[in-house]
């Protein structure tokens, strides 16, 4: 292994490499330390000055955005709930008003109906009475006519039987007697 290794290193780098195990070769330590200090120093500066504050800002920003959005949504939800409550109030009010209106209308209509019925009944009664009066008059008139016809018929019968005309008064009294009989 040792000879192989030395052959490999010598073939490659020549005098710069000694026979020691490469990681323990002190020749390149100073160069490595210098470049490590340069690169790691630069990296540290870049990270601490630029990258890490930026990532922290991004994360903070995101947190703020998320919590802001959540707060906003909570506020919106509360608003929506308030709106629902207001809407329900409005609805209940409107319903109560509608009910009251319906009841009032119903009462009014019922009163009006009673009124109409009363006046109608009244007028009906009046026309009934008038009709009764008219019927009675017609009946009286008809009866009178019948009596006249009966008197004429009785006078004619008596003239046929007796040959002389009876006086009107005796016929009338006879008809009246027949009425009562």
């Amino acid at each position: 292994m040792a000879t192989e290794h030395s052959a490999g290193t010598q073939a490659h780098g020549g005098a710069a490499h000694s026979d020691v195990f490469p990681p323990f070769d002190t020749n390149h330590f100073s160069s490595q330390l210098v470049w490590l200090a340069l690169t790691f120093g630069a990296l540290y500066l870049l990270m601490s000055r630029i990258a890490l504050p930026r990532v922290a800002a991004i994360l903070e920003d995101r947190q703020a955005t998320i919590s802001g959005d959540l707060d906003h949504s909570v506020a919106m939800q509360k608003q929506a709930q308030d709106a629902v409550v207001a809407c329900e109030d409005l609805l209940a009010n409107a319903r109560a008003r509608a009910q009251a209106l319906a009841e009032a209308t119903h009462l009014k209509l019922a009163e009006e109906a009673v009124e109409t019925r009363k006046s109608l009944e009244h007028s009906l009664k009046e026309s009934l009475e008038a009709a009764d009066v008219r019927i009675a008059a017609a009946k009286a008139r008809a009866m009178h006519n019948v009596e006249e016809i009966a008197a004429e018929a009785a006078a004619a019968i008596v003239q046929q039987l007796t040959g002389q005309a009876p006086d009107a008064a005796s016929i009338a009294s006879a008809i009246a007697a027949g009425h009562t009989a």
Binding site: H5, G8, T9, H12, G13, A16, H17, P22, S31, Q32
Partner: peptide
């Protein structure tokens, strides 16, 4: 071991 050799 060759991979660990530091060369200018």
């Amino acid at each position: 071991i060759h991979q660990f050799i530091v060369t200018p």
